[in-house]
């Protein structure tokens, strides 16, 4: 395996890692944000949301991937026979549980008064959530979302066990082909650090600047 080929392998690893992280982040967002509001404003559903969070935060990602890919995939070859889909699905649900917690904290941070003020102006509950609460909730939750994204980039490496060509899997393939145990893993470590570091810090500073700007 020559150097160009190794480089192409790593590039594929980077793009797969990014795709899994971004898709599962978006899946987590679309499930997590509504869950946080349901949990806050519909007390009756709180039990279910809590149970969902407990389950997906209390089981190792690795076990969940094996459970869905090897176990459920046996009976439902579509869609769980596909390793990439399964990894994204599992990380997305795990992320939904985390993001629901992040947004719950942010909703509390924004404060009940904002909701009351919006309602008193005649907005409906849905309108006040969409127009008043959500824009502020996002600013409050940027640091949390940044570290959640970094966590997803790191946890996508677990998809290695079901053979998804993430950075870790590609490093392993290169090691097997070149018999060099040092460089591939060091490169993998550096790539992961580069992929997690900048965005998380940038979101963190952006969030605090925005918060100061708006006087929150």
């Amino acid at each position: 395996m020559d150097l160009v080929q190794q480089l192409l392998y790593m590039l594929q690893g980077i793009s797969t890692t990014l795709l899994i992280s971004i898709f599962s982040f978006l899946l987590g967002l679309t499930i997590g944000l509504p869950l946080a509001f349901i949990r806050t404003y519909e007390r009756g559903f709180a039990v279910f949301v809590d149970a969902f969070e407990k389950v997906f935060r209390g089981i190792p990602e690795l076990v969940l991937m094996l459970l869905f890919y090897r176990g459920v995939g046996l009976f439902l070859a579509f869609p769980f026979g596909d390793a990439f889909f399964t990894a994204t699905f599992v990380l997305g649900l795990r992320s939904a549980a985390n993001q629901s917690q992040i947004f719950k904290g942010a909703i509390r941070g924004v404060g009940e008064e904002q909701m009351v003020a919006a309602r008193s102006l005649g907005l409906s509950r849905l309108q006040s959530i969409l127009r008043v609460m959500i824009p502020q909730v996002f600013i409050f939750s940027t640091p949390g979302l940044g570290s959640e994204y970094a966590l997803l980039v790191k946890d996508s490496s677990y998809a290695f066990v079901i053979g998804v060509p993430v950075i870790m899997e590609q490093a392993d393939r290169i090691r097997k082909a070149t018999y060099d145990p040092v460089i591939p893993y060091i490169v993998a470590a550096i790539l992961y650090i580069l992929l997690t570091f900048p965005l998380a810090t940038w979101l963190d500073t952006w969030g605090s600047r925005k918060k100061k700007q708006l006087g929150l």
Binding site: Y158, F160, M168, A171, Y185, I186, A189, Y192, F197
Partner: peptide, 10 residues
């Protein structure tokens, strides 16, 4: 910054 799998393999 790096995943636990990478650290274990290193």
């Amino acid at each position: 910054g790096s995943p636990i799998i990478v650290q274990l393999f290193i």
